[in-house]
Design a protein around this nucleic acid. Structure first.
Lengths: 154, 154
DNA sequence: CAACATTAGATGTCATAACATCAATATAGA
DNA sequence: TCTATATTGATGTTATGACATCTAATGTTG
């Protein structure tokens, strides 16, 4: 198995094992990792249309309507028809959603601490730089770049 | 967004974008990325029980019975009852499965070349080392370590 | 102003993915 | 020899995840 094949499996392993840890940390909040990303993005950039949300999510492509359905059902997100375009919906957090988003931010910190106990920040930086080489021009990489760019200019 | 949070999203982005590329390369062979991993592991270590297979798969935990069902239906894997233990099944590739596994190996090479055009082998090595720090003691990391160890001692 | 193109989002379908539960079978110990 | 426990794998359930298709609404062009 060469380095690139090992890399591919390691990325999968890191994603699966990391996601499982994240899911168990989030379980008390009643959200899944994908839903927590939605709450995090809305907390930062709301209001957003489905399409605008989709462009900022790493976990989803296109129009995340079913992902958002679950959060609407849980009363964490409010979906209203855009005033000037009946095709569009505007998505905002409810009070409950905002509260959960704050708790999700706490879980993020907990997860970062756990990861930080396994890998140094220098090594983490090297991994990030390497992965950016791979995903910079790809859809999920673009979504993350958009998020990072907007976070710095808001 | 700190380095560890960025790392988490980058791993997700790399996994999703990489998986999509792999899926499109594999589509002509009629298998999904997860199924291709099964064929790859069986080609190397057959015959295996479901549980033994599961211990060597990064893409799956536990007993991958539904994953294997699809390959049995596609006549790439043959499932027989173990002679000495009626709970166990023995899994082997069929001729068709072996042929597809060879084609999957070719796709792996194509994917490695594509990744190699985006990231240097030195950087890829650094990413691998960093990710090993994270997953070494976790289930998917253990599965990959088992595979690598056995590949070197067979 | 009407026809056509494009956009936004919902839904269908199939394959995971994770956790839990259950049935059949093998093993260990009294 | 019998019972309790452990093991193996199948199945149920819910939530994605990706691609495709469809409907409703808006924008553009002649």
């Amino acid at each position: 198995m060469n380095t690139f094949e090992e890399l591919r499996y390691l990325v999968l392993a890191a994603q699966r094992d990391g996601n499982r840890i994240l899911a168990s940390l989030l379980k008390p909040l009643g959200v899944t990792p994908a839903q927590s990303e939605v709450l995090t993005v809305l907390a930062q950039f709301e209001p957003l249309s489905l399409q605008a949300l989709g462009q900022r999510l790493v976990c989803e492509n296109g129009s995340p309507s079913r992902l958002v359905d679950g959060l609407v059902a849980a009363e964490m997100i409010e979906r209203t028809e855009a005033a000037d375009d009946r095709r569009r919906v505007d998505l905002r957090l409810t009070a409950h959603g905002r509260e959960t988003a704050a708790a999700v931010a706490g879980v993020s910190i907990d997860l970062a601490e756990l990861v930080g106990s396994l890998i140094t920040e220098t090594d983490a930086r090297a991994v990030c730089d390497g992965l950016w080489s791979f995903v910079a021009e790809m859809p999920a990489g673009q979504a993350l770049a958009t998020r990072l760019f907007e976070a710095q200019h808001s």
